[in-house]
């Protein structure tokens, strides 16, 4: 048994799933009638999309679930070849002791549009032996024709009560306690994302048995606010080269994600010691450069260019 809690406490059956009551009851009906349409699970991270897909397969197939279930993550394999080879190969063969197999395409909004096109025919052609469950953060990023072939399930953000329920379930099983402010901190940081909550809790429980707000903040961030602030302070005081070096360390040496850095910068803007009007200009620049990344720019280059703009901010 793997000791990573996100797996240890991942519900094994639909009955154990926390929240998403309406969706779960529809899925249970699928199990009962042994019929599943193509599905699209939409919703933010850590609210149960993968869990529901896995639990559905386990409930449906029992001990044979592994033979009848293929999971592939589109953010790692996003090209057309995944559809043409891996998915087709699996879809082609007969299911084991079941009316059909299930292919779970996680983060399917990351599939190239070419691959999504190829998926359309595949979904129809093999629908006798195979049903597709696609998951995504935003259903709008999945091509219309694919959406029209699926039953869309919108997963809601979990309420604080749901998150508390889940945290207490783990706390009881693992034998640690949380101070009230600790519990609040986990809830706040995870923002409904149970995977994040679980990881933070496990890390905190290694440090101490009584988890407080401070422990939670200590273990939660991979990008420290201090580091981001140092970069911004350098840039704003005109020290571009120094800012650029620090940014390179984060992005190349530590391989941090560009959009995460932009988000972190965004959080810091308000506490910077610059006039309020400048903050507004800052935000405008930030938005512009984030947009440039989505337009095809490379994150490290665009953020670097943003820093160059910031060096002039104090004087304009």
């Amino acid at each position: 048994m793997i000791e990573i809690w996100t797996e240890k406490y991942r519900p094994k059956s639909l009955t154990e799933v926390i929240g998403q009551e309406k969706i779960v009851s529809r899925l249970k009906a699928f199990v009962k009638t042994k019929s599943v349409p193509h599905c699209l699970f939409a919703g933010s991270a850590g609210i149960g999309k993968t869990t529901c897909a896995l639990a559905l397969a386990k409930d449906l197939y029992g001990e044979h679930w592994k033979q009848n279930f293929l999971e592939t993550n589109a953010s790692d394999e996003r090209g057309i070849n995944v559809v043409r080879s891996k998915i087709k190969d699996f879809a082609r063969t007969a299911p084991l002791n079941a009316p059909f197999k299930i292919i779970f395409l996680d983060e399917s909004d990351a599939l190239t549009s070419e691959a999504q096109q190829a998926l359309r025919r595949t979904m129809e052609k093999y629908s006798n032996t195979c049903r597709f469950i696609l998951s995504c953060n935003y259903s709008s990023k999945v091509l219309e024709p694919i959406q029209s072939r699926t039953a869309v399930f919108r997963f809601n953000r979990l309420t604080d009560d749901d998150v508390h329920k889940y945290i207490m379930r783990i706390a009881q099983a693992e034998g640690f306690t949380l101070t009230p402010d600790g519990l609040n901190a986990v809830t706040k940081i995870s923002y409904g994302d149970l995977r994040k909550a679980t990881n933070v809790l496990q890390a905190a429980s290694i440090v101490t048995e009584e988890i407080s707000e401070k422990t939670i903040f200590d273990v939660s961030a991979s990008l420290r606010p201090k580091e981001v602030k140092a970069i911004l302070t350098d840039a704003l005081s005109g020290k571009f080269l120094s800012a650029r070096n620090k940014l390179n360390t984060l992005m190349i040496d530590r391989g941090l994600d560009g959009l995460d850095i932009i988000k972190a910068i965004h959080r810091e803007v308000y506490s910077l010691e610059i006039p309020e009007k400048q903050k507004l200009k800052f935000i405008e620049l930030l938005g512009e450069y984030e947009f440039r990344i989505t337009e095809g720019g490379t994150p490290d280059i665009q953020i670097e260019a943003l820093l160059a703009q910031l060096t002039c901010l104090s004087k304009t």
Binding site: I4, D76, N199, S222, D257
Partner: peptide, 14 residues
């Protein structure tokens, strides 16, 4: 863990 490499890197400190 049924999640993408991108997510793994986000939680790498953990």
């Amino acid at each position: 863990l049924h999640i993408s490499s991108k997510h793994i890197m986000k939680d790498i400190k953990f």
